[in-house]
Design a protein around this nucleic acid. Structure first.
Lengths: 179, 179
DNA sequence: AGTTTTTAGTTGCAACTTAAAACCTATTAA
DNA sequence: TTAATAGGTTTTAAGTTGCAACTAAAAACT
């Protein structure tokens, strides 16, 4: 990677959302719960047997994830003992992160593709490796990247241009569920 | 998402690499250490002041990450008190996961793009949102996905075809650093 | 040379978190 | 009406975290 920045201080500050993300989803078991939920698990006892987690911890995590807006909790109509946990859009939007982490494990830990294989339901072919893309969809490696300050994102001294790019970036960030 | 599978049992088994990944990189602070390392931090005291982590925990995590092959540890030549921690290729390959998590936080937690913004150094424009791609690069949403058993990946009864696709998938998974 | 400072740790201890098992309460099924 | 199920809570032991103080080796200062 190109020399990124001499001044690292702004990374420590509140500018980066990684610490915030980790606070919500970085706890032990959260990703496992998420994976089960993505696979259609929705009831307490099913999470319990699917993942090897303790009852009290599961109860605690589900409560927190509901509080964080990642899941919803709804008592079932037909059987009022049961509760249905479902992923919100916010929760579903963690799928790329989860897949990226899983693919990393395939490459560097297990060495084999996880089975079953995640596929495009249109042509039933495996999805590609999750990667970073340039604006024009070129795949980017680490050395192709640099960090640029938001204020500096205007290439010339053209104010409108900078705003365009920031706005565009914001739209990009928010495009996941809207399709 | 299309109904994925009725039989969830194989998820619990050793087939999915997510639990393995989490064992290596899922502990508290690991991603923060990784982020610092990606930004060029390489010395113990710098990690310490960059992240708000305790000395003993940092020492523990760095040891584990070195053991896991995510980082290397090398005493410096010019000042033998100092130690240089560097990311391996395996460590660098966690970048897409980290970026995906950060983008999720931007969208759902902070609501604003993190500053500085990660850009393509060729055209200095922000990178795209990390997303899942079909084989032909179409962006896939959750509903476009399905899990298919490896054995089932041959669409017709053509053995060579199936092998092609698995091999291709393996190549995909391993294409990150090799470019 | 001797003292101080810097770097990268280790150790000890209190506070907190996790895990396993037993318990509880409201429903539903037999 | 008794038993079983679902989704928790409580209790207690074991493990982890975080802070502060300590150490050891190398470098810098006087």
């Amino acid at each position: 990677m190109e020399k990124i920045r001499e001044d690292l201080s702004s990374l420590a500050g509140g500018e980066c959302s990684l610490p915030v993300s980790l606070e919500v989803i970085g706890e032990r078991w959260c990703f496992m719960i998420l994976r089960a939920a993505l696979n259609g698990v929705g009831h307490f006892e099913d999470f319990l047997s699917e993942i090897g987690i303790a009852r009290n911890i599961l109860a605690n995590r589900l409560t927190r994830m509901v509080e964080a807006g990642i899941m919803t909790r709804r008592p079932c109509d037909h059987d009022k003992r049961k509760v249905e946990y479902r992923l919100t859009d916010k929760g579903q939007d963690l799928l790329p992160t989860m897949i990226a982490l899983r693919q990393w494990g395939e490459r560097w830990e297990t060495g084999v593709p996880s089975n079953p294989i995640l596929c495009d339901s249109r042509d039933r072919k495996p999805i590609r490796k999750i990667s970073m893309r340039a604006h024009d969809d070129r795949v980017l490696e680490m050395d192709d990247l640099c960090w640029i300050d938001e204020a500096e994102l205007k290439p010339a001294s053209d104010g409108a241009n900078r705003d365009d790019m920031v706005v565009r970036h914001l739209r990009e960030i928010g495009e996941s569920t809207a399709a």
